[in-house]
Design a protein around this nucleic acid. Sequence first.
DNA 1: GAGAAACCGTACCATGAGTGCAGTTTTGGA
DNA 2: TCCAAAACTGCACTCATGGTACGGTTTCTC
Lengths: 214, 214
Amino acid sequence: MSAVLETRTGKGEATRERILEIAEASVLAKGFGATSIDEVIAEAGLTKSGFFYHFKDKNALAREMVRRYVATNDRLFDEIFARGHQLSDDPLQAFLISLKLLAETMGDLPNGHPGCLIASICYQERLFDREVRELMAQSVRGWNARFRNILDGIALVHPPREPVDLDDLADMLSCVIDGGIIMSKSLNDQSRLERQILLYRSCIKLMFAAPPAS
Amino acid sequence: MSAVLETRTGKGEATRERILEIAEASVLAKGFGATSIDEVIAEAGLTKSGFFYHFKDKNALAREMVRRYVATNDRLFDEIFARGHQLSDDPLQAFLISLKLLAETMGDLPNGHPGCLIASICYQERLFDREVRELMAQSVRGWNARFRNILDGIALVHPPREPVDLDDLADMLSCVIDGGIIMSKSLNDQSRLERQILLYRSCIKLMFAAPPAS
DNA sequence: GAGAAACCGTACCATGAGTGCAGTTTTGGA
DNA sequence: TCCAAAACTGCACTCATGGTACGGTTTCTC
């Protein structure tokens, strides 16, 4: 199931990677339906036959794109939350640090966040087979569970000041990111995403941090 | 500029409306690029000539779709926030009531929220001309300004407990809705959107409501 | 140097956007 | 009731794109 993640050595793997990268950029800019294979292969410098040697059809391309996107994203999250954990032993502080890092990372992207592939697919679901849709749902569940775990750790040490559903609060991070990306893109203002993540961070602080001595 | 909003009486207007409704559903399910005119006209029961009688090309269709969507959404917001205002004189309470109404409205949709047209377009921006993109940006700015106005009114009466950027907090509602829609769709769980709006409501309460007597 | 991997070339089909235009029905108003 | 405009139909195109099929060629690896 995860043999895909092994690093293959052949030259073909480099071509595959190139195709996936170009296709992802195109999908995020025009959508999957409007992403033409001809354009992709032109930019990748190979022929249609070459493309279909690597991918059985467009849906196979979509599957690999999602796998690649999820893997990349997971790696980023691993890094950022590990870093937070290194910098503080307190789970709340660690999370707050990680959120700050995440916000900075998003704000420092050269041309703004290119877009969330999951969101793109979700707005074109009828184009994909069950496998792609299942892959997408699974990855979202994975991210939510990851955030929920962190919140659980925090709640043990810092009981929330008001009753709050930790599942919803975990979901909210993904929502804020996806919404922030959309707002950044539609207003052509990169800072919105960063600021939304920082605002989510403020909410977390308000929910868990002890009130100032009064 | 806004002559479009006049209610035209002709039979043609009904056909236009039918086309727009069918096209919107298709765009939200498959994306604009994959929405075929042939399919739309088949469902609407007219010919290609008939379609092009109403819309010069696909981009004209997109423009009218956005105008229609924004108008519908604005009407919904008008209603919901007016209702909140009727039920409480306190701006904070009125907003909290409206958010609850909004959450319920979203949760009670027969088949879940069909999707945000702005988000869909924003993930296929390269397909649209400047006019459509400008229309989209303008509508987002409009919604943000509306929410910002409400928050201003609240902050006058209830100074926030921690320094918070009201612009960001206003943006956050749109973000949470867009993100909630995506999460609802990708997990096929209608309740997520409703719960995200309620969580945003909790955050507002935490930010502005006086702390319980201590 | 043999076999597998990674391609290229070409021909072909179906679908979809969009154009052009002549002809027909429907509708609202004088 | 009739007329003109509105709201279409029908047909005949063009061009781009997704996708299939298949035989041939280069390139890498052992």
